[in-house]
Design a binder for these strands. Structure first.
Length: 850
RNA sequence: GCAGAAGUGGCGGAACUGGUAGACGCGCUGGACUCAAAAUCCAGUGGCCUUUAAAGCCGUGAGGGUUCGAGUCCCUCCUUCUGUACCA
């Protein structure tokens, strides 16, 4: 294929852009700002994937377009470089993660530059840089030194925590504070992988299991972040952001709000009581037994001697199961009777207390009142163990319902639900719920309650390659958080990253880490050996880009205001795989910072957009094993970066999954060749056919429509149709031997955001000396985007019978007279009379005949 | 099961508030250029009927409905993708 000299052109302009710092972000306050953010990549050893350029090109186009529209554009790039894969790789190769990380980042930067992205590299961040993670640690300490004021619904300094009068002892006060901090230590069952020597997040399990690693449940001492305190705000504030519906839905589900009630149950022959959560307090009369989670704290207290062995055995069995196994056993429910009875507060009758692993310890109170008549799970369990099923709700239509056969779970009419103090019998479910809550509250044995599914965030990993937790412990069991002036707490420079073998991170083997004299207190100390999870660094990187070199604060307030007001990042582009975790964690950190006034917006990301996956040519997900992986380096070598960029935009709508096609990129490449030949000679000089001349009517129409459509499509992220329109332009103008110079110039400006290298070159060939990005995006004349002659459809009985070429805005009489004169139209009138005429100006005329 | 999104030629995909379905690209067919090929350029290209054309009929996952008119709006169903799942 005889191509324009894309390799030379692209190298040349990339060099010039680099040399002239052309993409350095301007902060000239007289211009409006636009903050575009890409989800920064994890710099893996494999280099850039073909999917990366999709989102990055989209944002690059917008960045260039907004720049040409006079905005100060902040469009930075960085690296999320802490992580287990790098650590594993380094263990195999026996190199240091810093070395591997720097090598990988250098490869990524080279590839990103090769694709011509206009990033301001002076703002590049790297989460593993101590100057960066100093502030990650600083933020962790902010969270650590906070408690959540439920009334004010915000974080407050831990020193402002009201301490109950009865607590006076210094140590007790510290313990009390620790219990309320937003970062706290807890013994929790975690997903432990022996081979990796670390815990894994629930969402990480699949990935590593697929690679053949084994993961087991095991209780361990872990750092947790109290994200659950922000459940309500994280849920409510979704209303403030312009995100894909599906992503918002996913977050809503993840947070999982349910409205119901807590009800207290007493235990027969025991002065203890317990609380259950239910969304259907109206069915309390139908609660025929109780189920506690096997882990429930009361289980050992209440189990009767003759049930002890069976209960202990059941608890042992379930403790070995992972969460996955427990939920996987969807088929049949198991459980054991404790021998104890609770009192149903509504009926006053004793009901048996069971334990079963279908009740989860970590949700609600870890205890339920089982209403087998009106809950499918309880129904199944009741059938298995022959427990009584009682009907307390009937379908509102009055139809019969066989409660033994199937639970009735919908709203209906309360039935047989009365005691000496109140009755809800005959009430519709919503009223019955309210009335029951009133009664519970009047007796002080229950209240309305909103429950969330969201769990606290497991915030420690037993790894070397992560941010150290800036906390030290002393021999007396006390601990001390580092002062701001002591940050960053750097990783010790070691070369042994093998797990300690004790369930601790490799840091536990580093003498200087676990056995040193704290200079501040003079006491013998050891640092926390856990490091932070990979999510930590990505929780706030968008703020660091704003002020990347500041060593006083993570981000200057004034600068934050300029770039983040009014609603945060203007456009955030990234994969849908981060729809929940990263986006939830980042929102959480942002809200803590917001509570302290460090950031000025309640939400970090105004508009979120997900680019779709690029599939292999065979329509399957690209993977090494399928051999359908496309490498961006190869594509750039064969067709050039501009072709790759344009092709990825032309493939289809940005959010869709789309298959790669080699002949498809050839088509786009052919288009760029046509563009080149339209303007330039083979010797890269201006083609003689480009001349100062008037545009034809048709050319004027196409030019102005193109400027209009390309601009509008960029704004709405419909890049595929913008490319189509530019193709239409080229098709129109190559028809003519004389190419009007002014049209060519405007076209090249439209092309520039998409294919910046060829556009720069053609712009220079057209005689310009300054970079094309310094020029404004062209304006169009609306009147020229409208044709003065249009085709109008003539229908008879709503079927097209003819088409008329008529002047724009022709009136009905005129159209009618022409239409009636049409031969084919007349044919369809034969033997019929016109009953009705529908005239839509500039569109159609429709005759209804009979 | 639940939630969200989507089903349009041989393929990727267009189609504004209901008003010419299939823009643009790929592929394919024919032609020009060439000794030949590549590249390039021109023309054609949803299906059926027809030698061709005109004319006509059928066509946006399936079936109903609203309307002069439905890819677009409403109802029912099917399929695919994505997330989630004993959350009381």
């Amino acid at each position: 294929m005889a191509s324009y000299p894309f390799t030379e052109i692209e190298k040349k302009w990339q060099q010039r852009w680099d040399d002239s710092d052309i993409y350095k972000t301007s902060e000239d306050k007289s211009h409006p700002k636009y903050y575009i953010l890409d989800m920064f990549p994890y710099p893996s050893g494999a280099g850039l994937h073909i999917g990366h350029p999709e989102g990055y090109t989209a944002t690059d186009i917008i960045g260039r377009y907004k720049t040409m529209r006079g905005f100060n554009v902040l469009h930075p790039m960085g690296f999320d470089a802490f992580g287990l894969p790098t650590e594993r790789y380094c263990m195999e190769k026996n190199i240091h993660p810093i070395e591997a990380t720097n090598t990988n980042i250098a490869v990524f930067v080279g590839q990103l530059k090769m694709l011509g992205f206009g990033y301001d590299w002076s703002r590049c961040v790297n989460t593993t840089d101590p100057e960066y993670f100093k502030w990650t640690q600083w933020m962790f300490l902010k969270i650590y030194n906070s408690w959540f004021d439920d009334e004010q619904q915000r974080a407050r300094p831990i020193d402002e925590l009201p301490i109950p009068d009865e607590i006076t002892d210094t140590k007790e006060i510290e313990d009390y504070k620790d219990k309320h901090r937003l970062a706290f230590i807890s013994m929790v069952p975690v997903n432990w992988c022996e081979a990796l020597g670390t815990v894994l997040a629930n969402e990480e399990i699949d990935e590593w299991c697929a690679k053949g690693y084994e993961v087991v449940r095991r209780p361990m001492r872990q750092w947790m972040l109290r994200i659950t305190k922000y459940s309500k705000r994280l849920l409510d504030d979704l209303a403030l952001v312009d995100w894909p519906i599906s992503t918002k839905e996913m977050q809503r589900h993840w947070i999982g709000e349910s409205i119901g009630a807590e009800i207290q149950f007493t235990i027969e022959g025991n002065d203890k009581s317990f609380i259950v959560f239910t969304t259907r307090p109206d069915t309390v009369f139908g609660a025929t037994y109780i189920v506690l989670a096997p882990e429930h704290e009361l289980v050992s207290d209440i189990t009767t001697p003759d049930q002890k062995n069976e209960v202990a055995e059941y608890i042992r069995e379930t403790s070995l199961k992972s969460d996955l196994e427990r939920t996987d056993l969807n088929k049949s429910k198991t459980g054991v009777f404790t021998g104890a009875f609770a009192v149903n507060p509504a009926t006053g009758k004793p009901i048996p207390i069971w334990i079963a692993d279908y009740v989860l310890a970590h949700y609600g109170t870890g205890a339920i009142m089982a209403v087998p008549g009106h809950d499918e799970r309880d129904h199944e369990f009741a059938l298995t163990y022959s427990l009584p099923i009682k009907k307390v709700v009937t379908p509102s239509g009055g139809s019969e319902w066989d409660i033994e056969n199937k639970a009735f779970t919908e709203d209906g009419i309360a039935f047989d639900s009365a005691n000496d103090e109140f009755s809800i019998t005959g009430m519709a479910t919503p009223d019955a719920i309210n009335r029951t809550i009133e009664w519970l509250e009047s007796k002080s044995i229950g209240c309305k309650k909103i429950q969330y599914k969201l769990r606290d965030w497991l915030f420690s990993r037993q790894r070397y390659w992560g941010e150290p937790v800036p906390i030290m412990y002393f021999e007396d069991g006390s601990k001390r958080a580092l002062d701001e002036s002591e940050l960053p707490l750097r990783l010790p420079d070691v070369l042994d990253f093998q797990p300690a073998g004790t369930g601790e991170s490799p840091l536990a083997k580093v003498e200087s880490w676990i056995n040193f004299i704290d200079p501040k207190t003079g006491k013998k100390a050891r640092y926390e050996t856990n490091t932070m999870p990979q999510w930590a660094g990505s929780c706030w990187y968008y703020l660091r880009y704003i002020d990347p070199k500041n060593d006083e604060i993570f981000c200057n307030k004034e600068k934050e205001k300029y770039w983040m007001q009014p609603d945060g990042v203007d456009l955030y582009m990234g994969g849908a795989e981060h729809a929940v975790l990263h986006l939830l964690y980042a929102r959480f950190w942002h809200k803590v910072l917001y509570d302290y006034g460090y950031v000025s917006t309640p939400e970090p990301f105004k508009k979120l957009y997900h680019q779709g996956l690029i599939m292999g040519e065979d329509g399957r997900k690209m993977s090494k094993s399928l051999g359908n992986v496309i490498n961006p380096d190869d594509v750039v070598a064969e067709f050039g970066a501009d072709s790759l960029r344009m092709y990825e935009m032309f493939l289809g709508p940005l959010p869709d999954a789309k298959p790669w096609s080699t002949s498809g990129i050839e088509g786009v490449h052919r288009f760029l060749n046509r563009v080149w030949r339209m303007l330039a000679t083979e010797a890269a000089t201006l083609s003689e056919s480009v001349v100062e001349c008037e545009l034809s009517k048709e050319q004027e129409y196409v030019l102005h429509s193109t400027i209009k459509k390309v601009g509008e499509d960029i704004e709405s992220l419909h890049f595929n149709t913008a490319v189509s329109q530019m193709m239409i332009f080229v098709n129109e103008f190559t028809k003519s031997d004389r190419k009007p110079r002014q049209a060519m110039e405007k076209f090249v400006l439209c092309l520039a955001p998409f294919a910046p290298h060829i556009a720069e070159e053609l712009w220079a060939i057209l005689g310009n000396t300054e970079s094309i990005i310094r020029h404004s995006f062209p304006d169009y004349d609306e009147s020229k985007t409208i044709k003065d002659e249009i085709e109008l459809v003539v229908q008879v009985m709503s079927k097209i019978r003819s088409k008329l070429i008529i002047p724009l805005d022709s009136n009905e009489e005129f159209v009618d007279s022409l239409a009636r004169a049409d031969e084919n139209v007349c044919k369809h009138f034969e033997g019929k009379t016109v009953r009705k005429v529908i005239f839509v100006p500039n569109k159609l005329i429709n005759y209804i005949v009979s």
